[in-house]
């Protein structure tokens, strides 16, 4: 799959640096005791920035739902249609969700509710950059 390459900014750079080291680290607000993803400059709940740190998570989740892209305006992905786009909830913080293409699962066969595990996929043409991805357990 020809995925686009995330371009880190000042706030997100630690996240993507960790992904390149094959670690999934999320923002954690010590005041709210809450994890946060995507990365933001401030806590979603309290709005503070000085309470945010980084915390590595285990990488276990479940498929909430899976849709299938048949026509896309993301030009780099046109060659991939049809492809799954699943919404993954993180087991240790179910209010956190991620997108996934469910590599290894054919389009339209995304299993609702299935357990998934984290892995890191090297991006084509990126010079060694990775992205966090999820695959159905047992596949």
């Amino acid at each position: 799959m020809s995925k686009t390459i995330p371009q880190p900014d000042e706030v997100s750079k630690p996240f993507w640096d960790a992904v390149d080291q094959k670690k999934l680290t999320l923002q954690y607000c010590s005041a709210c005791d809450r994890l946060q993803y995507p990365v933001r400059p401030t806590c979603y709940d309290c709005g503070k920035s000085d309470t945010l740190t980084w915390r590595e998570v285990a990488g276990k989740g479940h498929v909430l739902e899976t849709m299938v892209v048949h026509d896309t305006r993301v030009v780099r992905r046109k060659v991939d249609v049809p492809f799954n786009v699943a919404l993954i909830s993180l087991d240790e913080a179910p209010y956190i969700n991620f997108l996934s293409n469910l590599p290894g699962t054919p389009a339209h066969q995304g299993p609702q509710g299935a357990a998934v595990e984290l892995f890191f996929e090297e991006l084509e043409g990126s010079g060694g950059r990775f992205i966090h991805e999820w695959r159905v357990v047992g596949q």
Binding site: K3, T4, I5, Q7, D9, R76, N101
Partner: peptide
């Protein structure tokens, strides 16, 4: 709304790599 290029910046870094389109549709 064509999204060209190989890099995704800003809010798109969290969605475009997985083929997410800028739209309420998905």
């Amino acid at each position: 709304h064509l999204e060209e290029g190989i890099y995704s910046a800003g809010g798109r870094q969290w969605s475009a790599p997985w083929g997410w389109m800028t739209s309420a549709m998905m």
